[in-house]
């Protein structure tokens, strides 16, 4: 009897070892996917604005911050969570539109780098505003469906991770249907393909650009709302989000929505796999080295358009 038990436990440990490495990988994988989904949403925001207006919007991370912070403060004021989230999206969209009308549209025709500086100014402005309007503390939101982790083949996954992944998938699908199946969406695509031609066929490109800023703000805010229960939020989370989102968008190929999603997920995976298998200290470095290597091999990103210089 005792012999049998020892035998069993040894076998169990043996299997456990292999099982552990597999579950370890799955843990890394799902963590990376969750983190990456958020990057993907931020990158999608970058892409939408870039396509419509050629602007790289470094204030994109501030929309994520607004999504989280407004929801936190609205629900602290007694507003039910779904309504608070809706308010947050509306606030972010309003800020996105104001950003376009007050800062981007008046600077039409300025060089790309000048407009980048404007968006960086906007990012500092919004952060400064949030610090006054809210506070400088970190905040959390309750998870949408509890904190009890779900076991997937030995990996513990928070229910909120599925919300983040599902939300990202939904956002991508809605955006796809909007761009491909609606008239307004097609106008956005036309504007991104050739602004002059779009204007010639009667598309109001200014409206399209405003639409892109509003939509991009909404996507950012959704990302912020979905992820705050996991990552917490504060007035200054936007900078890091913008940095990672921009990297993801470039990795996937600027201007390609699918590329943004692929880039985001890949960046998230690179970070967690880097932390898990390489070194947690150098995980950001590992991710950026991989980005550099990919860009050297594919100078337009993974799914970017090939462009030809026109004289």
């Amino acid at each position: 009897m005792r012999h049998w038990r020892r035998e069993f436990s040894r076998r169990h440990i043996d299997i456990g070892g292999r099982y552990a490495s597999m579950s370890e990988f799955l843990q890394f994988f799902f963590s990376g996917l969750t983190v990456g989904a958020v990057y993907a949403l931020v990158a999608l925001g970058f892409t939408l604005i870039y396509n419509a207006s050629d602007v790289v919007n470094f204030a994109q991370g501030e929309f994520v911050m607004l999504g989280g912070m407004v929801t936190v403060f609205a629900s602290a004021a007694g507003v039910p969570l779904p309504l608070a989230a809706l308010i947050a999206i509306c606030v972010a969209v309003a800020v996105g539109l104001l950003l376009y009308w007050l800062a981007i549209a008046p600077a039409r025709g300025a060089s790309a780098v000048s407009i980048i500086i404007i968006t960086i100014g906007a990012s500092i402005f919004l952060k400064g505003g949030a610090q006054v309007a809210f506070d400088k503390q970190f905040h959390k939101l309750p998870s949408f469906s509890g904190d009890a982790p779900i076991d997937v083949l030995g990996a513990s996954i928070l229910p909120q991770s599925f919300w983040v992944l599902g939300g990202t998938l939904a956002a991508v699908l809605i955006l796809y249907v909007f761009l491909e199946k609606t008239l307004v969406g097609k106008a956005v695509l036309a504007t991104s393909a050739n602004r002059l031609a779009a204007r010639l066929v009667g598309i109001n490109t200014a409206t399209i650009m405003a639409l892109a800023f509003g939509g991009s703000a909404a996507i950012g805010a959704i990302a912020g709302i979905l992820v705050t229960p996991i990552t917490l939020t504060s007035y200054d989370v936007g900078t890091m989000m913008a940095l990672k989102g921009f990297a993801a968008a470039m990795l996937g190929g600027m201007g390609n929505p699918l590329g943004a999603v692929v880039g985001g997920l890949l960046l998230g995976l690179l970070e967690t796999l880097g932390a898990g298998y390489v070194s947690s200290t150098y995980k950001d470095g590992f991710a950026f080295v991989m980005i550099l290597v990919i860009l050297f091999a594919m100078p337009q990103g993974l799914l970017g358009r090939r462009t030809v210089d026109r004289v």
């Binding site: 025709g109 402005f125 919004l126 952060k127």
Partner: peptide, 22 residues
Amino acid sequence: QEYENLMLGFIIIVSMVFMRDG
């Protein structure tokens, strides 16, 4: 004080919008 970053961002935006070449 608290309004420092708000002002800094505002000044950067306004100067770039109105002096786009610098």
